[in-house]
Amino acid sequence: LNLKQAKEEAIKELVDAGIAEKYIKLIANAKTVEGVWTLKDEILTFTV
Rank of each mutant, 00 (worst) to 15 (best):
L1F: 12
L1A: 10
N2Q: 13
N2V: 11
N2F: 12
N2G: 10
N2T: 15
N2P: 09
L3H: 01
L3Q: 01
L3C: 03
L3T: 02
L3G: 00
L3I: 06
K4L: 11
K4C: 08
K4Q: 14
K4H: 08
K4Y: 08
Q5M: 12
Q5W: 09
Q5C: 07
Q5Y: 08
Q5D: 06
Q5E: 08
A6F: 04
A6I: 06
A6V: 08
A6G: 01
A6L: 05
A6C: 06
K7W: 03
K7I: 12
K7F: 04
K7Q: 09
K7N: 01
E8Y: 10
E8H: 07
E8I: 11
E8S: 08
E8K: 10
E9K: 14
E9T: 11
E9S: 11
E9I: 14
E9H: 12
A10Y: 01
A10W: 02
A10R: 01
A10K: 00
A10V: 06
A10N: 01
A10P: 00
I11P: 00
I11T: 06
I11V: 08
I11G: 02
I11E: 04
I11R: 06
K12W: 05
K12T: 05
K12H: 05
K12Q: 08
K12G: 04
K12A: 08
K12L: 06
K12Y: 04
E13Y: 09
E13F: 10
E13K: 06
L14F: 04
L14K: 00
L14S: 00
L14V: 02
V15M: 14
V15Q: 14
V15R: 15
V15G: 05
V15C: 11
V15Y: 12
V15A: 08
D16V: 10
D16M: 15
A17M: 12
A17V: 05
A17Q: 07
A17Y: 09
A17D: 02
A17C: 07
A17F: 08
G18C: 06
G18Y: 03
G18R: 05
I19G: 02
A20N: 09
A20G: 10
A20F: 04
A20C: 09
A20V: 06
A20W: 05
A20H: 10
A20R: 05
E21T: 10
E21W: 15
E21M: 13
E21Y: 12
E21V: 09
K22N: 07
K22E: 12
K22S: 08
K22V: 11
K22D: 07
K22I: 11
K22Y: 13
K22F: 12
Y23G: 01
Y23N: 02
Y23D: 02
Y23K: 02
Y23P: 00
Y23H: 04
Y23W: 14
Y23C: 08
I24P: 00
I24V: 07
I24F: 10
I24N: 02
K25V: 13
K25E: 09
K25Y: 10
K25G: 06
K25T: 08
K25A: 13
K25N: 09
K25D: 08
L26W: 11
L26F: 06
L26H: 04
L26Y: 06
L26P: 02
I27F: 04
I27V: 08
I27R: 00
I27Q: 00
I27L: 07
A28M: 15
A28D: 11
A28L: 14
A28I: 13
A30F: 02
A30S: 05
A30T: 04
A30Y: 02
A30E: 06
A30N: 01
K31W: 07
K31A: 11
T32I: 01
T32D: 06
T32M: 02
T32P: 00
V33N: 02
V33A: 04
V33K: 03
V33D: 01
E34K: 09
E34Y: 07
E34W: 08
E34L: 09
E34D: 08
G35E: 15
G35T: 10
G35K: 11
G35F: 07
G35V: 10
G35N: 11
G35C: 15
G35D: 15
V36P: 01
V36N: 01
V36L: 05
V36I: 05
W37L: 11
W37Y: 10
W37T: 07
W37N: 09
W37S: 06
T38D: 07
T38E: 10
T38P: 01
T38K: 15
T38Q: 15
T38S: 12
L39S: 02
L39M: 08
L39Q: 04
L39H: 02
L39R: 03
L39N: 01
L39Y: 04
K40E: 02
K40S: 04
K40W: 06
K40N: 02
D41H: 13
D41C: 13
D41Q: 13
E42S: 10
E42N: 07
E42H: 13
I43G: 02
I43T: 01
I43S: 01
I43K: 00
I43D: 00
L44Y: 06
L44R: 03
T45D: 07
T45E: 09
T45P: 04
F46G: 10
F46P: 04
F46W: 15
T47M: 15
T47S: 13
T47P: 07
V48K: 12
V48M: 14
